[in-house]
């Protein structure tokens, strides 16, 4: 495993994605150290304890909403805060952004994917889960264009397949995987 931050995993999800996200996080290998960024669509001004929910299944990684300009660290799972877009700077710190929603969403998955890939290029691993809209499809395209890894939850395992389907249809290089396969893939990353 690399010592400084090299690879990054960024997971986007909307309706129906939470159980899959929990499954993926719960089954991360214990020595997993690649930072993970989670961008989930949530309801505005409705307090939801996403951090607590994720922490209940994953105790070896530190789970938090990043502060603006905080450095990305290994063994951390970062949650995009409600009502902001989450971006990444060239020096591998976070920036928050309160610009217009994209696809009616803030945080938007496209915005984070595109920003992450600008910095991490081919070292980006993007995972797009269940959802009922189109957010993430452009971002996945950018990941593919930069020779990163773009994984969509397989439509037949998605409670709401529209979001993964949009990404898959937009780009043939997006890999479609069932949740167990995503877990396997992440395990094999640690071995390499």
């Amino acid at each position: 495993m690399p010592t400084s931050i090299d690879h990054i995993i960024v997971i986007g999800g909307s309706a129906g994605s939470l159980p899959v996200l929990l499954q993926v996080l719960e089954n991360l290998p214990p020595n997993f150290s690649i930072p993970v960024i989670v961008v989930l669509h949530r309801l505005k001004n409705v307090a939801s304890d996403l951090q607590g929910i994720l922490a209940s299944v994953q105790q070896t990684q530190k789970i938090k909403e990043p502060e603006d300009k905080e450095a990305i660290k290994r063994r951390h799972v970062y949650i995009a805060p409600q009502n902001y877009h989450l971006l990444v700077e060239a020096d591998k710190t976070f920036s928050l952004d309160y610009s217009e929603p994209v696809h009616y969403s803030r945080p938007s998955i496209d915005v984070s994917f595109e920003s992450v890939v600008r910095v991490f290029g081919p070292k980006t691993i993007a995972i797009l889960l269940s959802g009922a809209n189109q957010d993430g499809a452009d971002g996945m395209e950018a990941v593919v264009a930069a020779n990163g890894v773009a994984i969509a939850q397989s439509p037949e395992t998605s409670e709401y397949p529209a979001m993964p389907v949009a990404a898959i249809e937009k780009n043939a290089k997006v890999k479609s995987m069932a949740p167990e396969k995503i877990v396997e893939y992440l395990h094999q990353l640690t071995v390499e």
């Binding site: 971006l87 990444v88 610009s99």
Partner: peptide, 9 residues
């Protein structure tokens, strides 16, 4: 200015 946001703008 933060570059990530500025580029988008």
């Amino acid at each position: 200015y933060s570059r990530a946001s500025l580029i988008r703008r």
